[in-house]
Nucleic acid binder design. Structure first.
Lengths: 247, 247
DNA sequence: ACGAGGTCTTTTGTATACCACAAGCCCCCC
DNA sequence: GGGGGGCTTGTGGTATACAAAAGACCTCGT
């Protein structure tokens, strides 16, 4: 077979047939859920398969598959013969999520101390070391940057699984971000913590980096514990729904 | 409304209509996968929806939903228009799973140091402190006990989410347990580690407990790194399948 | 004989029809 | 008048039918 790479041919790119309706529906619904102010609503939000199927213009089957995925990921909860509800995490569940996050990011920081290159750490500082202005006026931007910092840090650990696992976790956290930063000067102190973490990474001090990350994240947990009382403490479970993990 | 709790009435328990076929199928398939020696097979194992539907006596729909769940949990992998394959983790993926496990269990141990009662720690020792006999003749029992120890330890941390997350992880690990204990006197040394961990818990020394757990689990990672070469290092991916997390 | 092309089979993706169950309502009986 | 039972309606759960796509294989032309 001759080498055809040199021959002139149409510049066509692989059109992605792989994006099944399930995946599209899944992303669409997830986006809708994420953008919705779940915790501001007075009562649980109910989803209707038929409604969704009509709105998205596809049949119920892919919708159902998408919802199965979202249920696995902890965004919706299916009560048999009753309906689908958008999940509102309880305070306890949120604190548990933060705890797992602390565990993962802490070890990621430890690993980063030996695995990350100087350049990578420098880039981390370049990206997030410039926020020493008052963040209280840029809550939204700060929130974005905050999440991005933590995700970048986890990525520095070099463990893809850690990044994957925390991804959905951060989405869940986004929904309660007003709790996590609104009160007192949390944002300001948070930035100081980040600086210290970066410094520990630069010093290649694994124990200190891991400890700082852990304490920082635990600080958030304590904050939620203190100020998160308006979160729904009881799962509001009609007939013991199918509790699932977060994902 | 009178208090009817004192009246005699039939002791009927809520019959669980909630266990949908999806859930049953999911568990059945997961069990089948778990009991199968995935890593002993020469090539990837393919699943047939219709075959499964026929074998389990239900239609394809619940089968598909179950497989969607299993795909989320990282047990199977769906290649569009091609088929479903039982996932064989690569060495790298296994090491990443162990890393996440280390992160979670390490923090769980730390938490256990302050949250677990003396009785709980004593029970841990009672259950797993008796294995100072030679475990080399009881590989299977030891393997069971080993997993049980780690799960118990994580539970002591008091964070349900940690238990949930590591549950599937342990199932994945089970499949390669021959790698994890067969070589050298790993089992023996493992028990010593466990003893030290229990001792640290008893001493309420959080830092030491966390460190010991981390080092113990990293030891396993290093072991897999060294001896796990017969694991398939390349995902054997036909046409870039839909890679998913473990779950 | 060899290769390009078409066709056939297999297997998944999607749509639709049907069924079982739960809630709410109303009516009938006590 | 009150309460229980059945009916109505709406919802998710299941089964099945249909469509599309990928791989295997066969055929025909050169």
């Amino acid at each position: 077979m001759a080498d055809v790479t040199a021959l002139p041919r149409l510049k066509v790119e692989r059109l992605s047939v792989t994006i099944s309706l399930r995946r599209l529906a899944c992303e669409a619904i997830k986006r809708a859920i994420t953008e919705m102010d779940i915790y501001g609503q007075p009562d649980e939000i109910r989803l209707d398969e038929r409604q969704l199927s009509e709105d998205l213009g596809v049949s119920r089957t892919p919708i159902r598959e998408a919802l199965t995925v979202l249920e696995q990921e902890g965004f919706v909860r299916s009560v048999p013969r009753r309906g689908l509800y958008v999940v509102r995490k309880t305070k306890r569940e949120i604190i548990e999520m933060i705890t797992v996050w602390a565990a993962i990011e802490s070890l990621a920081a430890r690993l980063a101390c030996t695995r990350a290159t100087d350049a990578e750490i420098a880039r981390l500082r370049a990206l997030f070391g410039t926020f020493d202005i008052d963040p209280s006026e840029h809550i939204s931007e700060y929130s974005q940057a905050n999440m991005a910092f933590h995700q970048a840090l986890i990525r520095l650990g070099g463990c893809d699984l850690m990044s994957e696992l925390t991804e959905n976790l951060f989405i869940h956290m986004r929904a309660i971000r007003d709790v996590t930063i609104r009160q007192d000067n949390r944002a300001q102190r948070s930035i100081v913590d980040h600086m210290n973490i970066i410094a520990a990474l630069e010093a290649r001090d694994a124990d200190r980096a891991a400890r700082l990350v852990r304490e920082h994240t635990f600080g958030l947990a304590a904050h939620v514990e203190t100020y998160g009382d308006h979160l729904h403490d009881v799962p509001a479970a009609p007939h013991e729904p199918a509790r699932r993990t977060f994902g």
